[in-house]
Nucleic acid binder design. Structure first.
Length: 798
RNA sequence: GCCCGAAUGGCGGAAUGGCAGACGCGACGGACUUAAAAUCCGUUUGUGGAAACACAGUGUCGGUUCAAGUCCGACUUCGGGCACCA
């Protein structure tokens, strides 16, 4: 078949007929199918796009044939760092390069033959889009969900700019090699932590991969414990968070994070130099390095002492980099006898190690003993089991006003300020008199100026543009400055699924009534790398907008599917430096999109992915040619009465078996087995080998079954079968169960759980009948016991 | 380092705890052809055997079960994420 020619013919026809338009009148039958939109960093669609968009489109087309009105939009996540880096390197403006890339990708997406409705296209860098991103930020601000806080950023002293984690390589700047520091800057945060509990609970209500739910649960990191207030010997106090309050009597020192605000105040003069050095050193390390459990623990003494509230004991206050300012209270109590990190630290620095838990059942309990057990050397808690001791000690502290039970989350607020150019400007104004003031909604969008020097020079690129920065305070009318930062691109992508149905609405971000009809997204497909960030942010924004009354659903994505990662032919992740990048165009331009897509369907387990190999592509083209030949033969047989009943029954079985499996497999994103069932069907048609009505009917069903996968080829064959309408609008075949029923079935027989052979029995055979047949096969007189699972196995035990 | 996955023939991959290897690639054989290509048909986990069949076999080691690729524990290797790449 001339695939390229066929594809051009049908694509043109579909475009002329607007075959992929969403019909709003049928919104009651809607299915919202969405892929994570693409980031136009390169000029071309890469293999991952094909794998995500191409195969999800197979699913979308199946749903259409099953009678649903599918809403399947496409757009671009167009702001972001790579375009800006590219601009710094080449001088090409991010807007220009991004628009050019989008144009190319749009063309390629159209040639994919996927059923996107382009009427709803969005681009996050379009002022008509980011206007509403800014509007959402303002709503969050008005509802107390946005606030300014100090937070550390990576600062390259040589480039004189903030750099992303990605640009930090082994603690050094990837551009110039200078050692990167962490600096505190004032930044906007969205208070996602307010929703920690609901984000956790909501996971139970959605159809997502279990592993993704587990990852989100761990990311949110709820832990039950308590706070303990330590008074400082020289006045003042601080709280620690612990999940093991039962070990409080064994606390022999306390540790603050190096960044803890109290550190400067409490450090004694003798210790000052060491503490300052240590803080500077800690600022150079990433959190991953700091929390590594194999890294040797280090720390320094501050010279200060704190009072353990349960026993009045004076314990030294240290700082150590394994304590993070961002988790819990930024301070921990150290119980070396019952925590491995504290133990290593205490051994290294000669701090006391005192047992306060022993094993309950006499099992070995060498120190450090981190298991639960029974409290010892713990005053009033002696003899209590760990759980009881926790409660007793926290209750005691609560009674004294020195702490109590507390639940903590690992989840941190979402930092959204970026000291970069290519993003949505933060719609806030800083006034000397009024402080931070929101831009009024009527003045949105705050437009990103085109003429900006985005080269690094010590502050945000926008901050150097006086024309942009100077404005008047909306509150007092005095002179004021704009916020020089832009929003994290995750903000743009945390609500785009709400915008698609409202893509052309220039009055609102979305029309609530309409949004309620089309959302939530029924099936969302994208990479598992987004499990904790994008997917959590989107859930948060949905819940926040719901609480403001704008939405009436709780979760944005009912069902989630992750596609796997396609690796290079060498089994490694594709990358420029490895030189193992596969360009899909090289194959699509030769074989066409149908063949390439069917290859992607067949060659991988969708959710696993795997190494790419060119070897499988040509065979798919051959297979479609083989299918074409048998369909062509079948056309000649139309109207000829079938002769052989047995052969016809076998063919009909194959047809209905394929019908039964194909749709179910595609719906389960098991594309490879769906293709396998189609191959079995064509094999059965070849075996039948008679041009008559039975073969003709099989061909008709086959063409419908294959249509979601290879729509162009299916349209062509459908036309040749004598049809005038589109095969893509035919109802998807449903199996006739009566054709699948067999008078005898093969029942595997096991002896003591080992397979011994099969017997043919009636599908509804009784246990006695089945046992008799099995015993005959095994030539045994009787069974001691029989395990019979009709349709599955019969296991004889002697 | 921490969290989450994955590992099955020469290769890609199938398999609600119940016949491991569906389907395909490759390889081998046959038909057609003067020949080749293309096509159609067949064989193809390993070992032994002419065969029937027997034994072994799903990364490693151990466990649960009448029965384990599948469940549990420990490990090895690879992949994803770790909050400023998206």
């Amino acid at each position: 078949m001339d695939f390229l020619k066929i594809e051009e013919k049908w694509r043109k026809k579909w475009e002329d007929e607007r075959a992929d338009s969403f019909d709003v009148r049928r919104a009651d039958k809607k299915k919202y199918v969405l892929e994570m939109f693409s980031y136009p960093s390169g000029a071309n669609l890469h293999l991952g796009h094909w794998y995500n968009f191409g195969l999800t489109d197979v699913y979308a087309r199946l749903l259409r044939m099953q009678g649903f009105e599918v809403f399947h939009p496409m757009g671009f996540d167009a702001f972001g760092l790579p375009a800006e880096n590219y601009a710094i390197k080449t001088g090409i403006h991010p807007k220009d390069s991004t628009e050019k890339n989008i144009k190319t990708m749009e063309g390629q997406l159209r040639n994919m033959g996927a059923s996107f409705d382009w009427d709803y296209e969005i681009k996050t860098c379009d002022p008509e889009y980011y206007k509403w991103t800014q509007w959402i930020f303002l709503q969050l601000y008005k509802h107390g969900l946005a606030e300014q806080k100090l937070a550390p950023v990576n600062w390259c002293p040589s480039c004189n700019t903030v750099i992303a984690n990605e640009q930090v390589v082994d603690g050094c700047c990837e551009r110039c090699g200078a050692v990167v520091e962490r600096r505190e800057m004032r930044q906007w945060f969205l208070k996602i932590t307010k929703y920690a509990e609901e984000l956790l609970d909501g996971l139970d209500t959605i159809d997502w991969p279990e592993k993704t739910k587990i990852m989100q649960r761990n990311w949110i990191g709820k832990s039950y414990g308590g706070t303990v207030t330590f008074d400082l010997a020289n006045g003042g106090s601080f709280d620690v968070f612990t999940t093991r309050a039962d070990t409080l009597f064994g606390c022999s020192y306390v540790v603050l994070a190096p960044e803890h605000p109290l550190v400067r105040e409490i450090t004694t003069d003798e210790c000052k130099a060491a503490v300052e050095n240590y803080r500077a050193e800690a600022a150079r390390q990433s959190e991953i390095d700091r929390t590594s459990t194999v890294k040797e623990k280090t720390g320094v003494f501050t010279g200060a002492y704190a009072i353990n509230p349960v026993n009045g004991r004076k314990v030294p206050v240290w700082i150590a980099d394994y304590v993070l300012a961002t988790y819990g209270t930024g301070a921990v109590m150290a119980v070396p006898a019952h925590d491995t990190r504290d133990y290593d630290f205490a051994v290294k620095y000669g701090l006391p190690i005192e047992r306060v838990v022993k094993s309950a059942d006499g099992a070995p309990d060498d120190l450090p003993y981190v298991e639960y057990g029974v409290a010892v050397n713990s005053g009033f808690a002696d003899g209590m089991k760990t759980e009881d001791a926790k409660n007793a000690i926290l209750d005691y502290l609560a009674g004294k006003g020195k702490g109590g039970k507390k639940t903590t989350y690992r989840l941190r607020d979402w930092s959204v300020s970026r000291q970069r150019y290519w993003g949505a400007p933060i719609p806030m104004i800083h006034c000397e008199r009024c402080g931070a003031v929101p831009v009024s909604e009527k003045d949105l969008p705050v437009k990103l100026p085109y003429n900006v020097d985005f080269k690094p020079k010590g502050k945000s690129p926008l901050g150097a543009n006086e024309e942009y920065m100077n404005c008047t305070c909306p509150k007092c009318g005095g002179p004021a400055r704009r916020d020089p930062d832009t929003l994290d691109t995750f903000v743009c992508s945390s609500w785009y699924y709400l915008r698609y149905p409202n893509a052309k609405n220039d009055k609102q971000a979305f029309d609530t009534e309409w949004t309620d009809k089309l959302l939530p997204v029924d099936t969302y497909v994208g990479g598992a790398e987004h499990a904790c960030m994008h997917l959590l942010y989107a859930r948060f924004i949905t819940k926040a907008l719901r609480d403001m009354g704008y939405l009436h659903f709780d979760e944005p994505f009912k069902k989630l599917v992750h596609q796997g990662v396609i690796l290079g032919p060498d089994g490694k992740r594709m990358s420029k430096t490895r030189g193992n990048i596969i360009n899909p165009d090289d194959y699509v331009s030769v074989y066409g999109s149908d063949v390439f897509k069917m290859y992607l369907c067949f060659a991988f387990s969708y959710t696993e992915g795997g190494p790419f190999s060119t070897d499988g592509i040509a065979p798919i083209a051959k297979y479609l040619d083989r299918a074409e030949r048998i369909v062509t033969k079948a056309i000649d047989g139309k109207g000829i009465a079938p002769a052989d009943d047995k052969a016809r029954a076998d063919l009909e079985y194959a047809v209905n078996y394929a019908a039964k499996c194909c749709g179910a497999d595609i719906a389960a994103f098991s594309f490879n087995t769906a293709v396998a069932r189609l191959m079995e069907l064509t094999n059965a048609m070849y075996k039948y080998d008679t041009a008559d009505d039975a073969l003709y009917n099989a061909a008709v069903t086959f063409v419908k079954l294959v249509a979601p996968i290879t729509p162009h080829v299916a349209e062509e064959l459908w036309e040749r079968l004598g049809n005038k309408d589109s095969v893509l609008r035919q109802p998807y075949p449903v199996a006739d169960e009566s054709k699948l029923a067999r008078s005898l079935i093969e029942m595997p027989v096991q002896l003591m759980g080992r397979f011994k052979g099969t017997v043919n029995i009636a599908p509804d055979a009784t246990e006695a009948e089945a046992t008799a047949a099995a015993l005959a096969l095994l030539e045994l007189p009787a069974a001691k016991k029989v395990i019979y699972k009709p349709g599955k196995i019969l296991n004889i035990i002697v």
